[in-house]
Computed example of a mutant assay.
Amino acid sequence: MSLVELTWAWLTDPAQWSGYAGIPARLGEHIFYTFLTVAIACAIALPIGAYVGHTGRGRVVVVGLAGALRAVPTLGLLVLFVLLAGIGLMPPIWALVILTVPPVLAGTYSGIAAVDPVVVDAARAQGMREHQVLLFVELPNALPVIFGGIRAGVLQVIATATVVAYTNLGGLGRYIFDGLALSDYPQMLGGSVLVAALAVVADLVLGAILRRLAPRSTSRELPAPELPAPDLLVQEIVKEGTP
């Protein structure tokens, strides 16, 4: 049998869909790691990005920091956190948080900074305070861009959360590392397929939500003006020229 056939047999084996090490359990662990990571990253990045986007202060620092964090290797950061904090749930989660903050931070900052200044000035002219301008004007207008950054962060976490299995945690990455240790290539390929499928489904769901958040165009095509028939137009001209 080919590797593809063996992988399909592994995926369709009923034994893989039950028990604490079954696909549903590993999938639930992977989703939990992703949700926890994105929640912590949003709690850190959203306030900072909103402040920088609204005031413009610290823009250079934020852009440089976000670029530097993107270049950090995931596995190296994971090993560092585990060596410093020990084996457990949070050390690998914090490593993933550091890698998730940049896209959320960049989306929040760029979204608020891109809000039309005319809209912001109009809100201030109506007597709104700065925090009201941020909460009721800038954030609603920047929401699609902010959610786009969160969407990118979610997809990145789904892909990189497989490395948490390196520290004896669960998730879909468990199949990849266990298959590597046992030279079980169908299991490794099956785990990779499950991660890819989860990423595709998450992207489709988040994309549908993003389309709902995107502002709809208010411009409508105006109907073409109806011109009178040529003979009626000539009659009108004759009437106007008659004394």
Rank of each mutant, 00 (worst) to 15 (best):
L83Y: 08
M188K: 14
V195W: 10
I98S: 04
W17V: 07
F136E: 11
P225G: 05
T218I: 02
T37K: 01
Y166Q: 07
P225N: 07
A71T: 14
T12N: 06
D231Q: 07
M90G: 04
L135V: 09
L206N: 01
G107Y: 11
S18R: 08
G190C: 02
T7F: 15
I209E: 13
L172A: 06
Q235W: 02
V97E: 01
R216A: 10
Y20I: 14
M90F: 13
A196Y: 12
G148R: 13
S2M: 12
T167Q: 11
F136M: 12
L180V: 08
D178A: 10
P186I: 09
Y175S: 07
A95G: 01
L36R: 14
R211T: 06
G170F: 07
P24H: 02
G171W: 08
L134G: 05
T167I: 15
T12W: 12
A123F: 04
G173K: 14
A85S: 03
L77H: 03
L169V: 01
Y109S: 15
A165T: 11
E5Q: 15
P47N: 09
G171T: 07
I87P: 03
L36G: 09
I48N: 00
G49K: 03
R211I: 05
D178G: 08
H54F: 10
A224H: 04
G49T: 04
G19Y: 05
A159G: 04
T160H: 07
R216Q: 13
G19I: 14
G86F: 02
T100Y: 03
A39V: 05
V38C: 02
G207T: 00
V163I: 12
A199G: 09
L77T: 06
Y51S: 08
I150Q: 03
R57H: 10
L155I: 03
V79D: 10
T162F: 08
W94D: 00
Q156K: 00
A114Q: 06
I146P: 15
V200R: 15
S219N: 05
T167N: 14
Y109N: 06
